[in-house]
Design a protein around this nucleic acid. Structure first.
Lengths: 250, 250
DNA sequence: CGCCTTTTTGATAGCCGTCAAATTTCGTGG
DNA sequence: CCACGAAATTTGACGGCTATCAAAAAGGCG
């Protein structure tokens, strides 16, 4: 059915399907630590990427769980909704990060995942991932590490929500963003936030006005400059001091 | 070397080592959903239980990760320490629950685990668990569910810490305790808390005085009675209303 | 260019943290 | 078994941080 030029001879099928092998995120994402052959195997079960435009949903609370998603490009948030309409943002997700881990427990997604800018994700059917991880121990182990890392991250946020005040929370948040941008090759001191003050506030357990005031305070102290969503970190060290010496939120 | 009566012929070795097969927690713990043969296999890798007396440490932050622990009896807390001495309790752990999941990510424990009463745990060497889970798909899947459930639980606590006020947090906490006691066959409306007001406060992001006041308030409203660590829930429905209609913390 | 959303900033109120002291409970040793 | 001291709990008074309400300014999208 496919035209001649797409036959296996001329075109690597694995690359059509997912191209883990050639993906620039190979060192950030699920394939970390796998050899070429193993990456190939993994790539074969991953469904071609799916696009979500800004504001669109990757999945909604209650939807049947079938696949994990790896962020290929873009930026997403996950949030749990309360009956009274309030939402709590549980995370922001950048390239190479895995979404949907919460859904394994009940076979249903327990949160909404919304794209904050046009995004692409790779779809990883979970049952297939479990299948092949039986034959690739390093993949299984790495997957366990990813889940564990999510737990550690959540504990860090619990610490933040349970014991920091507004300015410390924001400093912690900015340092976290900074580090994650830097890992991906972007500037860790000059970046654009994709989320609103309200979303930051929801994530940090603060009201949007409080977030705004905390931004202004950090700017008055000449630690950062803020112009709407554009943030420049002028003094990383002092930002770390503002955060307090509490355990780093990963 | 062993006296005759301990030879394999007279005594089931698997039972000496761990007795998953005969453990009363089989339906709460890691073996959920396994058949007899699989439980036997699992039981063979589990190291004989270890006792921790009240106040003792199961593990400390920074300790090398080698095994997960299943609570056999007793009650423990996990907490992360900040440099300035403050501690944030990240969880309370009852029989059948698994500890150490956070340590997989870095091969080091990221929190302290302390027994709040004399406790026993089964030690599950993690590398062996991964080995046998390759041959027992249902064990692997169940393990993934357990990790995922921990993530969902943490998200629930983030919601609590980020958006509830003191009385709602305490109500939520009491309902959670109630449910977990009930699952284990104890009364869900009449129980003794094992932790101090300070530990509850740390878990809920409140100061101990605030926890005490919230207890008093619930008692004034005739929703519960409190005598020190002894709690009776007089009106479950009204306690649920106090919590607000927010998503349940698991 | 104009409308709507987002952000900023101010004023005020309320919840919770802090400090303090009294009371009860618990653990240890006599 | 009782007594003593340390730890935990309760309760009050007060202050500070953040939420709330409000309005103006800035930015984004059609």
């Amino acid at each position: 059915m496919l035209p001649e030029r797409f036959s296996a001879k001329n075109f690597d099928v694995a690359q059509i399907r997912s191209s883990c092998a050639t993906c620039s995120l190979r060192e950030l994402c699920l394939p970390v630590g796998l050899n070429d052959e193993e990456v190939e195997t993994l790539g074969e079960v991953i469904v071609h990427k799916r696009k979500i435009q800004r504001g669109g949903y990757l999945h909604r609370t209650g939807a049947k769980f079938q696949a994990l998603y790896a962020v290929r490009s873009g930026f997403l948030k996950t949030c749990v909704l309360e009956e009274d309409g309030r939402q709590q943002v549980t995370g922001f997700h950048m390239t190479g990060e895995l979404l949907g881990l919460d859904a394994i427990s009940t076979d249903m997604h327990t949160c909404d995942a919304v794209a904050l800018e046009d995004s692409e994700v790779c779809e990883i059917p979970f049952s297939k991932l479990e299948d092949i991880s039986r034959t690739i121990p390093s993949l299984m182990h790495h997957f366990h590490k990813i889940m564990s890392r999510e737990i550690v991250r959540d504990h860090g946020i619990m610490l933040l929500l349970g014991s920091m005040k507004a300015e410390e929370r924001l400093a912690s948040f900015l340092l976290n963003m900074s580090r994650r941008f830097a890992i991906r090759g972007y500037s860790g001191t000059d970046f654009n936030l994709r989320m609103t003050r309200e979303e930051i506030g929801s994530y940090l357990g603060l009201k949007l006005e409080t977030v705004s005031r905390a931004f202004s305070r950090l700017q008055e102290d000449a630690i950062i400059t803020v112009n709407n969503k554009h943030v420049k970190i002028l003094n990383l060290e002092r930002l770390k001091i503002k955060m307090g010496n509490s355990s780093c939120v990963t």
